[in-house]
Structures are given as C-alpha cells and as structure tokens.
Amino acid sequence: MNIVVLVKQVPDSGAERNLRSDDSTVDRGSASNVINEMDEYAIEEALRIREAHGGEVTVLSMGPAGAAESIRKALSMGPDGAVHVVDDALHGSCAVATSKVLAAALRTLSPDLVLCGAESTDGRVQVVPHMLAERLGVAALTGARKLTVDGGTLTVERQTEEGYEVVTAPAPAVVSVWDTINEPRYPSFKGIMAAKKKPLRTLALADLGIPADEVGLAGATSAVVEHSQRPPRSGGQKITDGGDGGVRLVEFLAAEKFV
C-alpha cells in the first residue's frame, strides 16, 4: 500500500507562541519549531500498515525551508522518502489555499491512503483532511482511534459524544488520527543516520501548476484585522489547607453563586 503521511512543522506548543506584528501570520522565526505532535501518531500508523501489508511510506509537508528539519526528523522514524512543498509565495496561506496545494501534491503521488494528525497544535482548525477529500473526490475518515486495512477497504473506529462509531470507505481515502490510536516509536540511532540519506524532493508552486496569487497572503480567503495578547490571568486567593480548606472552598463558591 502506497501511503502518504502529512506532516506539519508547528511552533512548540509548550513554549510561548505569537502572531507576527507585521502580517499577523504565525511567528515561526522566533519560536522553537517541532513536528506537530499528532502527526507522529499518523507516521507510526503508516509504518505499522507498511509492516503488515508492505508498500511505501512518503512524508508530505508544506512549509518554509526550515521545515526540512522536521521532515528529516519524521524520516528518522522510518518512512521511505519525503516531498517538501516550499515556495515563498505560500507564506500566509489560509486553509482553503493550503488544501489546494496539498491536493495538487497528492495527485502527483497517487497514494492509496493519506494519513494525517487530527489537528495541528497551532491552528487547531481540523478542516484540512475533509478539504483534501473534497478536492480529491475521495472519502475522509477523521478522528480515528483504530484503523484496519483489509484489501482495498479501510475501516475506522472513531469516538463520538454518544459512544463510538465504525465507519468504512474504499481506498484511496484520507484518514486522520487521534493520539489514542497508537504509541509512536522513538527514532533509533540507525534511523536517524538513515534519514540523512533518504530522498527528500522539493516541489515549488510552478511544479504543481498553481499560480502564486491563488495562495499565500495574496490569495487568502480570510484576513486578520487585528490581534492582541489576552491579558494574562492573575492568580487570586491561595490558601493552605489547615483542616477547613474544603469549607473555605465552598464558601468561595457560594459567594460566587455557584452553590
């Protein structure tokens, strides 16, 4: 099975993150950048499917030149190769444009299965899997906590508010995964060394036949009007339990009309 895993480099969600003051895009220059955590689960799932059914795993990422570092890291887990869509004109692309670019790149790779994380920790928008499915005319099975491949049929178990549901679709399809699906492996030393020699191909917009004005800030379908830091919460009263902590907690709740 030919699998493409979508990987996004994001600012570390454990560090301070900001929007740039000049063009309101995510500040990727000053932040420490990492692989979007949820994508590691997608890579792991792809590797497990390859181990069980054979085939190839290709990483696909769209991002600035610096994203190559995260792509190499992804490769060190075990995928066979990678494609990096990189073009200055992509800076500031909205989700609609991003899906246009990724769909065009996916068409050149003709995968049987596209795997990705259920959301990125920077935007948390969750729309790209379905946007890709819409553009490619395939099914999207999102939020998988379990994925089974049986010939050309994909079956996913996904959590719902009422319980869970089992959904099936024919390959090719886009499947997004939650962190409940597996436990990603750590790259081995051998894997890290091997990743340096794996093929990493770059594609520019021209290679995909997409005009520059359809993407990036120029082609964005939405715009930030303004942004500001939310005033940090200041801690209130902190008491040390001296035997009546529970009562005092409830006194606070009662004063705030919660009890």
């Binding site: 920077d122 939405s222 009007v225």
Partner: peptide, 14 residues
C-alpha cells in the same frame, strides 16, 4: 488562539 493567549479579529475576505 494559542491556548487562549492571543485574541484575533478576522474577516472572511472571499
């Protein structure tokens, strides 16, 4: 955005 640390005002432009 960003875990509640940033407030953004935006408009759909298309």
């Amino acid at each position: 955005a960003f875990a509640g640390s940033t407030i953004v005002k935006s408009r759909v432009t298309r």
